[in-house]
């Protein structure tokens, strides 16, 4: 308990002289890292807490290496950017998503290194940030334990495998699910350097960018991401991603691949 407080004090001392701008609102979750993260992420932009940013997760963190989170701000008009943040993770930001032609919705799984607030922060076209979230109790070690595929030793055999599917939605949008095989090494495990997916974009058949995101190693091993994009029902979607070693990943989601579901690989 003492160490985070000391760390927080140290960070505040470091940051205090640089802070000339807006003071973020008091944190309803009482997180020791709120002020520091708010200054770093939001700068001088206005910030307020808003329950219309719906951050959903299970009642129990059963697996601290893969904790499912959904940020859904479809009830808010004009969202241009979404950040998924776990205050007390050593790598606090998991995803920074720009839904260009997509609903302000993202679902994924993250690592939890200890009990922490998990938040969604969405930025409006006006520049204002709206934030929501809650505390999650979790066993430690989500960021500092080696990935399962490193322990098994087969990560390289599956690197680059991408699975996914597209579903039409009643409102004309399309639900895209993507899952990558990647160790997502945090760099916090002895003798394993940082190595993770760092960029992902979804493009429609006409080359129009539907959404893109930056990704950090606090996203779970074998990242799984769900998005809701605007595109014609029969259009092929293309997915492009890159990891921190500069390896490129490409996938194509064609309507023909949607169904029927194959039983295996």
């Amino acid at each position: 308990m003492r160490r985070p407080t000391r760390l927080w004090v140290a960070l505040m001392l470091m940051l205090a002289p640089a802070s000339a701008g807006a003071i973020p609102p008091a944190d309803p979750l009482g997180s020791p890292m709120w002020s520091a993260h708010a200054r770093t992420l939001f700068g001088d932009d206005p910030v307020r807490f808003d329950p219309r940013v719906i951050v959903s997760f299970p009642m129990i963190a059963e697996n601290q290496r893969a904790f499912p989170v959904v940020i859904d701000s479809r009830g808010i008009v004009g969202v241009r950017r979404m950040i998924l943040l776990a205050d007390l993770n050593p790598i606090p930001v998991a995803i920074d998503y720009r839904p260009a032609h997509a609903a302000p919705y993202i679902a994924t799984r993250i690592k939890l290194d200890q009990r922490t607030p998990v938040r969604g922060a969405v930025q409006l076209d006006s520049g204002q940030w709206l934030v929501s979230g809650g505390w999650v109790d979790a066993a430690g070690g989500g960021c500092s334990a080696p990935p399962v595929s490193r322990v098994k030793g087969d990560w390289a055999d599956h690197l680059g495998e991408i699975r996914g599917e597209v579903w039409p939605m009643a409102n004309g949008q399309r639900r895209v699910r993507l899952s990558f095989r990647h160790p997502m090494d945090t760099g916090l495990v002895e003798n394993i350097a940082t190595y993770h997916l760092e960029a992902l974009s979804v493009i429609d058949g006409a080359g129009r960018l539907l959404g893109d995101m930056d990704i950090w190693a606090s996203v779970s091993e074998d990242p799984a991401i769900t998005l809701l994009v605007d595109s014609a029902a029969d259009a092929t979607l293309r997915v492009a991603a890159r990891d921190t070693n500069g390896r490129d990943y490409r996938a194509a989601l064609t309507p023909a691949r949607q169904s029927p579901m194959p039983g295996g690989r």
Partner: peptide, 12 residues
């Protein structure tokens, strides 16, 4: 998911 979602990766 690993058994039901189809592979979609293409050679870059």
């Amino acid at each position: 998911e690993a058994s039901l979602l189809p592979r979609i990766d293409v050679k870059s």
